[in-house]
Write a protein that binds this DNA or RNA. Sequence first.
DNA 1: CAGTGGTCTAGACCACCTT
DNA 2: AGGTGGTCTAGACCACTGC
Lengths: 247, 247
Amino acid sequence: MSPSVDQFPQDPAPLYDRVERYILGKIQSGEWGTGHRLPSEPELSRMLGISRMTINRAMRELARRNMIDRIPGVGTFVAAAKPASAVVEIQNIADHIRSRGEVHSMRVIDLCSMVPSQEVSVGMGRPRKAKLYRVLIVHLANNVPVQLEDRYVLPSFAPSFLAQDFSKITPTAYLFSIAPPTESDHLIEAIGAKKVWCRHLAIEVGEPCLVVTRRTWVGDTITSYMTFVHPGSRYSLSGRTRSGGQQ
Amino acid sequence: MSPSVDQFPQDPAPLYDRVERYILGKIQSGEWGTGHRLPSEPELSRMLGISRMTINRAMRELARRNMIDRIPGVGTFVAAAKPASAVVEIQNIADHIRSRGEVHSMRVIDLCSMVPSQEVSVGMGRPRKAKLYRVLIVHLANNVPVQLEDRYVLPSFAPSFLAQDFSKITPTAYLFSIAPPTESDHLIEAIGAKKVWCRHLAIEVGEPCLVVTRRTWVGDTITSYMTFVHPGSRYSLSGRTRSGGQQ
DNA sequence: CAGTGGTCTAGACCACCTT
DNA sequence: AGGTGGTCTAGACCACTGC
């Protein structure tokens, strides 16, 4: 008896989709364990009575999802399960606040052109005494401060930066409108509140803060360097992940 | 003059790949701005002298990457640039330590069956007084404590949990060997050190700690609930993101 | 050498949208 | 009715692998 991909004949799903699930079923049931060699494309094509192109599309999709490994000239194999890389998305603070039904507002503390600290200069790969635009903003949720944003921006990237009203548009949104970042990195730390932060966030010195430091690239140049300081008691990051690997 | 996809005739890249880059070029150069309607598949097929199936594969790939929006019966449009969702991966602590060239070791403080706190019971959706397996471990990097792992495990998922030697295999690795999690969620907070943590991590009460709370699923059941406590001064999370959206 | 996956084509049918 | 994307097929050629 030839195996059938049609476990649910009335299923209107595309054929390649059903082939994917047919293969996934074999893997998840354990019938095809890690490292097991799958039937070749022509073989599956004959077995299921489906065109090779359709089989190919299904397997290509599974390979993209790292469920199987394909080696030209050799064969196709069930991939080893890999740890789901737990992931946290750093959301836009304004959206995050609004999504919780709270009111987002901003208070601009400083907006100027200045020579930044060496940490920032080095982090952005700028000459020691090169000036950058800088904005210091407090983000409030229902009038309670939840984030202190300390941001430096490459003047040549955003020449009109100093003319913006950052109580109305977030620096993130403004810079995004010039050009969306192509890349970014970030560092998350727990740090005791520094004295400078306290008056803006209405917290005590030493109180645990969640600090996110982030750089954004547009092409090859670093366009912005920023630090987000959140009172630990009023802000946290969360996320949910479907397994990236197998199963 | 008909446009050519062959800007680099000696380029050995597959045709669909060159078609993708041809389209991306139009978008990134601004010639086709956000919302611009792309030529239809048959149209591009004629324009470039390439089979419709190949055009389709290229466009399907671009749609998967959210570079274009496709509406059956209507057309294909340049997608709006979306904020790259900055993302942080929560790495396996042992790998993380080793990748920095340090020596990872563990000290088991507790391994037992117990009724957990209500927070854990509720978090795992268990009856109020149901027992769970629990392990409390300190992870050390070069003999310096960097993580306190407080983990609860569903007994029916890992019946032999209490018989393991968790100074040799991490709970994460052991549970993974039973069945890789299919899903997980997580919460990252900055919290002042509680008294219980201090002796294990060699820190002072109130010192800022980076706390990650995580649950893992296998199928529909929550198999494990864990809290990772890191001294803020000795541990941080980092990551890098290529833009998820456009350009 | 035969077998594998990677690619490409021409043509076809379909459901859906717009006119 | 004509256009659009979605899918599927049969057949073809290729580079590469392993025997």
